[in-house]
């Protein structure tokens, strides 16, 4: 009973939901990237690596330019470059996309730790000073609304960007010709090809988008939340986003709802002082939840039909 009342106390606090939304919006970026990539038919487990690369280069850029926007651009380009490698190897060379994606993740760990050691003489890069950090924006007037103001209108700028991108992506994917084409390429590339759609171009575009979005998420993490780079600092968030994408049945808003579940899990784990359960059990909650949800999704979560299958013109 004590635990229930402690839980209740946490669930009604604005701090809790502010944190949950921040972490949910952070995860939503790579998850959205995954949705776009896999809707086009390219399996993508590389969000983790693209995010890590983005995080590293955002810090390097923030330290040299003292400007968060330059850092965001550099981070997105870095994530996009990693995505381009994945796209090139998956599409051009028709590689096993899971192995290619996994290799991206290893390459990102190797590259960032290698460069981190090189640039800082094995000491680790220094902290990003306030001039290089992504700002928190308090929306005037609205931020004074009790509870809701704190949760929705006192957030880092990337939280708003993330929500806007979700809405735009949803619109593009389901309400425009481009979106229809993208989905066609992921479901039945032969038919799309016959109809005159350029399968390869759409797939390259979608995979690179996933890299840009994951790079942005890396920048958010590194210069919006942590303000420093630590080796391997994404610590599996890209993989969580991957799971969110699947729970969300490859739709932007579905993925966002799943990301919010993980965000709530993160926020719960951060409230160990209040809830009297061993900290590490709280931190298990999102992962166990993911397993339970996955197990419950019997036959209801179906990927795009051509997801993961390299396209060969004319068939083989």
């Amino acid at each position: 009973m004590a635990i229930l009342s402690q839980l209740l106390q946490v669930l009604v606090s604005g701090d809790f939901w502010q944190l949950a939304l921040r972490d949910g919006a952070l995860l939503a970026l790579p998850a959205l990237g995954g949705v776009l990539s896999e809707r086009s038919g390219v399996t993508n487990i590389a969000m983790e690596g693209m995010m890590l690369t983005g995080a590293f280069f955002s810090v390097v850029a923030a330290l040299s330019f003292h400007n968060p926007w330059m850092a965001v651009i550099v981070a997105m380009l870095a994530g996009g470059a990693m995505a381009l490698i994945h796209a090139f190897i998956s599409i051009r060379f028709r590689a096993d996309q899971i192995i290619s994606g996994f290799a991206i993740n290893i390459a990102a760990v190797g590259l960032t730790t290698f460069l981190n050691a090189k640039l800082s003489n094995f000491r680790g890069l220094q902290q990003v000073d306030p001039s290089g950090r992504l700002p928190t924006i308090n929306v005037p007037l609205l931020d004074n609304i009790p509870f809701l103001g704190q949760v929705f209108f006192q957030q880092n700028i990337i939280v708003y960007v993330s929500l806007a991108l979700l809405a735009i992506a949803n619109l593009v994917l389901f309400r425009t010709r481009l979106g229809l084409r993208l989905r066609a390429v992921g479901e039945h590339p032969e038919a799309a090809d016959t109809a005159g759609i350029n399968v390869y171009r759409l797939r390259y575009g979608a995979v690179i988008m996933s890299g840009l979005l994951s790079g942005l998420a890396g920048a958010f993490l590194a210069i919006g939340i942590a303000n420093i780079f630590n080796d391997n600092m994404t610590s599996g968030r890209g993989y969580i986003a991957l799971a969110a994408m699947i729970f969300g049945k490859w739709t932007p808003w579905g993925a966002f709802v799943a990301c919010m579940i993980f965000g709530v899990g993160d926020a719960l784990a951060a409230s160990t002082g209040v809830i009297n359960v061993p900290q590490y059990f709280l931190q298990m909650v999102p992962y166990v939840l993911a397993l339970v949800v996955l197990a419950g999704l019997v036959g209801r979560s179906t990927p795009p039909a051509a997801d993961g299958i390299p396209y060969t013109p004319g068939g083989e």
Binding site: I85, F93, D96, I99, A103, A107, V109, G110, F114, F122
Partner: peptide, 21 residues
């Protein structure tokens, strides 16, 4: 003084070229 993490990069390149054949 070359970071041992170069090994991970070698590993990734090996995976890429195996996967892409």
């Amino acid at each position: 003084q070359i970071s041992s993490h170069i090994v991970e990069i070698l590993q990734a390149v090996i995976l890429f070229s195996l996967a892409a054949n």
